[in-house]
């Protein structure tokens, strides 16, 4: 479990993280979402004790990271695929990391095998592709068999097979009761991987909820309707409180009424409907909606000031 409490990081005049508080729970995959520069990586570095918070505190499993007696066995982190000396081989990198915690060589071979690095383990890490670098970073994170995993953009640069592998891996680790905290820019990937989402923007938490709540909560259900009499149906549905967009010649997009009500309205008025498709809101739409709100919230005082 990761508990972040009022975490703030100020770089000179720029506030990267502004009083962020949240809890990442064990046994589920928690996604960390936000635009570039929102403060995701900074927050993760502060959890790992690499960056010193300007104010606030963060604990992992009850203790600040620095105070754990065997930190690599407590938390595994992939913060930067390039957190490796470019001239050292992947194997020696992992061996040196393992040595600090007396992690046996057999475990080094194990994580190399798990991440599919056998063929390149003896080569210089500097020559690795982005994807291979990610695999090495994940191998390093898994080295101590940690209870908590922090992965910053783990699928960045991975091939499709690697993306599926990471998704399966984190779901498997969470199912074992571990804490998994990962950030990603790939909304579709996040939708398939995370159970819970923390969305930040401009250094603040915008949303902190189960992923389903975020998808359904912010965007209303919509339905695609095709009919021969779009204009008449439009008026009828609008009369029942729906907001209707006349998309094409025969196509309406209805918001605010469920498909059953739409179908009954059409039938009662003898209108033929030949397509009725509930549109599932995507995480991406929910995310855009959320971050749009955030921007509106911030610009409101300025709008009032001009009145």
């Amino acid at each position: 479990m990761i508990e972040v409490n009022g975490l703030t990081k100020v770089y000179g005049a720029k506030t990267a993280v502004a009083g962020v508080s949240f809890t990442v729970r064990a046994g589920q995959v928690t996604g960390f979402l936000g635009p570039n520069g929102a403060g995701k990586s900074t927050t993760m570095r502060m959890i790992m004790g690499l960056d010193r918070p300007t104010s606030g505190s963060v604990t992992v499993n009850g203790l600040p990271y620095v105070r754990h007696r065997a930190p690599l066995r407590e938390v595994g982190a992939l913060l930067d695929a390039k957190a490796v000396h470019t001239s050292r081989s992947a194997y020696n990198h992992l061996l040196a990391m393992a040595a600090t915690h007396s992690i046996p060589k057999s475990r080094v071979h194990e994580v190399i095998e798990m991440t599919g690095l056998e063929a390149v383990a003896r080569k210089k890490a500097g020559g690795f592709s982005l994807g291979m670098g990610q695999r090495l970073g994940i191998a390093a994170a898994l080295l101590g068999d940690p209870q908590t995993l922090i992965l910053d953009e783990p699928v960045n640069g991975l091939d499709p097979e690697g993306v599926v592998w990471v998704r399966n891996l984190v779901r498997y680790l969470a199912a074992q009761g571990r804490t998994v905290f990962l950030s990603s820019h790939l909304m579709s990937e996040m939708a398939q991987t995370a159970d819970h989402l923390i969305v930040i923007g401009r250094g603040r938490v915008i949303a902190d909820a189960p992923i389903q709540d975020i998808i359904t909560g912010k965007s209303q259900a919509r339905t695609k309707v095709r009919t021969d009499e779009p204009v008449r149906l439009n008026q009828l549905l609008a009369g029942r409180g729906a907001s209707v967009a006349h998309e094409e010649q025969d196509l309406l997009e209805v918001t605010g009424l469920d498909p059953r009500t739409i179908a009954r309205t059409a039938m009662d008025n003898q209108i033929i409907v030949y397509e009725l498709t509930p549109l599932v809101a995507s995480l991406e739409e929910a995310y855009m909606e959320l971050t749009k709100d955030d921007v509106e919230y911030h610009s409101l005082p300025a709008a009032e000031a001009t009145k």
Binding site: L79, D80, R88
Partner: peptide
Amino acid sequence: TGMARSTFAAVPR
């Protein structure tokens, strides 16, 4: 090289 992140994650003191 960024190695420092790995080094000081392993030895946070």
